[in-house]
């Protein structure tokens, strides 16, 4: 029993690493083999889970792992609806390609009776805006990707 436990603890980091990898892809399973060792990590969902933080990822070609996003993300500070423009304004606060400075207001989260500014947490160039105007957002959801080296 103790022997088996030790073996399990030895491979645990590998299993966790595979599970993390799997989470970042749309694959259903991932396996890893070395010598006698063969680990397979598969998705197992209880019921249907849909989280606002994990919209369906784009399809991945072959079995190649999805490219991990580089650059920094600006996350939502509140739960509510994402607004790209200030109240009463037509023009979005920022657009793709804009240079932003840390602390600059780049969007709004509209929630119950209050509006919260989304401030850039890094300086750089806006590479992408991850959701459309008026879409629901949860706390900590990535909203913008910023290229930090491109200042």
């Amino acid at each position: 029993m103790q022997e088996a436990d030790k073996e399990f603890l030895d491979i645990l980091p590998t299993v966790e690493a595979l599970a993390l990898r799997l989470q970042k892809t749309t694959l259903n399973e991932i396996s890893y083999g070395k010598g006698e060792l063969n680990i397979r990590v598969a998705r197992h969902s209880i019921g249907e889970v849909r989280s606002f933080s994990s919209p369906p990822a784009p399809p991945v070609e072959d079995d190649a792992p999805a490219p991990l996003p580089s650059g920094a993300s600006i996350l939502s500070p509140r739960v509510g609806f994402f607004k790209s423009a200030a109240k009463g304004e037509q023009k979005a606060l920022v657009q793709i390609g804009d240079l932003v400075a840390e602390g600059q207001v780049v969007g709004i989260v509209e929630s119950v009776n209050l509006e919260s500014n989304i401030e850039a947490t890094v300086s750089g160039r806006i590479r992408s805006i991850l959701l459309d105007d008026g879409m629901p957002v949860e706390y900590g959801q990535p909203l913008f990707v910023v290229d930090t080296e491109d200042q």
Binding site: R50, S51, F52, E138
Partner: peptide, 8 residues
């Protein structure tokens, strides 16, 4: 995991 949707 068990709920139909989840919000952080």
């Amino acid at each position: 995991r068990l709920a139909d949707a989840a919000v952080c």
